[in-house]
Design a protein around this nucleic acid. Structure first.
Length: 464
RNA sequence: GUGUCUUUAGCUCAGUCGGUAGAGCGUCGGCCUGUUAAGCCGGUUGUCGUUGGUUCGAGCCCAACAAGACACGCCA
């Protein structure tokens, strides 16, 4: 198809005045009177619409066109006319408008604001709205920028298993994967389900993290990252949790917590910068209609160094704050959302790294600090979202790790391979995990994770 | 999982003191020579979430159930 795209019409690539072109697209709206009418045409190549001018005198099917229902697909042939004084830089004066696919008149999207809740019920049509057009184009750009930054910095893209036989660090409820007949389950002699009869001859689940598997590859390819689907069967009802989401998990050998933090900051800035450079129209729309501080916040994220403080320093800041928290602050507390928000929205008003958390509230694989109380962990807190990134330097010392696995009552057998990584040439290494949807929320200003996933899965909802 | 709130036309909502329901938008028809979520005139649109109860009478009062949203928790 040698069509001209609306995107190209509005780009630097100039078309001659009066040049005849053909566009294919969807009717966003028609405004017509007896002798002249206007179509706003969107062809999917840009969030912007092309204005088609129709004169009854030029079109023998003018009366029919004026009645095309919204969202009908049409082909327009006409001349480019520049209109520097109008709201749009140019328009197309139609010589022919052909209906390709008429929309039914019960098309559910009107020329007005709909609630996000309603739009979720028509997830197959919501990408036709400006907001979701912008969100999903930006989601694509953010994914590309992530790959681009990591590839340019020596990371190898790694696909860790989606079906897993281990319950990873015991982090949360998992979705069971089975081919057993649920109406006729095989049982062992003591009455339990006989998993040895299942497809994999054992109990299997969908992954909750590829981190441990990624560590093994970092200790061979030096720098790796996963970027794939992740599943949590938690019964969470929040704007920030989904049952199926995408996670980016870089792992780096020979890098400590400070190196880890440098990479996190650079990666976030690279993604934000790429979106600022390549989604100006989408960001402008979102800034006008969704979050009027969006662009300002993104520019600040790109240009200013992130704040960094230790957990212990953060506790002091919170204790000194002249604000009453619902949950009182003390050293050892696993910070609540209200505390995190206060730190990054009131005190710093930008992304904040918190490091060196008490070991009791962090995972077993995080490296123990010399103080005996904290671990080399880092969380990145950002305004509006909260925790965007969680990472750590990994415990590379064979004996320390073995003790932690024992203390946590974890299966020696199941984590044998993980301990082998220390047995055969241990080294300092670090990594982190980014909830991709939370990153998309941050760069679009959207407030609900369900509105940055094409077809979101949450408890009780797996439609489409 | 806990708490709060919501459910009335295709969408967004109003509905007073309990007396069988309305607006805007959409849609349909008409008018209009430059519109920008176009404008003007007219028509159309309902198992008031479900079930049961109170009442002469329930959208409204009561109970149970259901669906959804938000906040918190868990986390990314």
């Amino acid at each position: 198809m040698s069509d001209i795209l609306v995107k190209d019409l509005f780009s630097d690539q100039h078309y001659a005045e009066d040049q005849t072109i053909t566009l294919h697209g969807w009717v966003k709206t028609i405004r017509s009177s007896k002798k002249i009418g206007f179509i706003e045409l969107n062809d999917g190549s840009t969030i912007k619409n092309a204005q088609i001018v129709m004169k009854a005198s030029d079109l023998d099917n003018y009366a029919d066109i004026a009645k095309f229902p919204i969202s009908s697909t049409i082909a327009v042939t006409g001349k480019v006319v520049y209109t520097p004084d109008a709201k749009q830089p140019l328009e197309i004066h139609a010589d022919a408008v052909v209906l390709e696919g008429a929309s039914d008149s019960d098309y559910p999207l009107q020329k007005k604001a709909h609630t996000y809740e309603y739009l979720r019920t028509i997830a197959h049509l919501r990408p036709r709205t400006n907001t979701f057009y912008a969100v999903f184009r930006i989601r694509s750009l953010a994914a590309f920028a992530t790959h681009q930054y990591l590839q340019a910095h020596g990371f190898n893209y790694l696909n860790t298993p989606i079906i897993t036989g281990s319950d990873a660090e015991g982090a949360g409820e998992m979705f069971r994967v089975t081919t057993l007949d649920m109406n006729n389950l095989p049982h062992t002699e003591d009455g339990k389900v006989d998993n040895s009869k299942d497809f994999f001859r054992k109990e299997t689940n969908l992954t909750v993290s590829g981190q441990l598997e990624a560590e093994a590859f970092a200790l061979a390819l030096r720098k790796v990252y996963t970027f794939g689907p992740t599943f949590r069967a938690e019964n969470s009802h929040t704007a920030r949790h989904a049952s199926e989401f995408w996670m980016i998990e870089p792992e780096m050998a020979f890098e400590d917590l400070d190196d880890d933090i440098v990479t996190i900051e650079e990666l976030i800035k690279a993604v934000v910068s790429y979106v600022l450079d390549n989604a100006q129209d989408e960001l402008a729309f979102l800034n006008d209609n969704v979050d009027d501080h969006l662009i300002e916040r993104l520019e600040k994220t790109r240009d200013e160094k992130f704040a960094r403080l230790t957990y212990t320093e953060a506790i002091k800041e919170l204790e000194d704050a002249d604000q009453d928290f619902e949950v009182p602050v003390y050293w050892g507390l696993d910070l609540e959302a209200e505390h995190e928000r206060y730190l990054c929205e009131h005190i710093y008003n930008k992304p904040v790294f918190l490091t060196d958390y008490p070991k009791e509230i962090k995972a077993f694989y995080m490296r123990a600090n010399d103080d005996g109380k904290t671990v080399a962990a880092v969380d990145l807190l950002v305004p509006e979202i909260g925790e965007l990134v969680g990472g750590s330097q990994r415990e590379e010392r064979r004996d320390v790790l073995a003790e932690k696995i024992k203390d946590n009552h974890m299966s020696e057998e199941e984590y044998g391979w993980y301990q082998d990584l220390r047995k055969y040439g241990e080294t300092v290494h670090s990594g982190f995990g980014i909830g991709f949807e939370r990153l998309v929320m941050y760069v679009t200003g959207m407030k609900n994770i369900r509105d940055v996933i094409p077809y979101p899965r949450t408890p009780g909802n797996a439609d489409f």
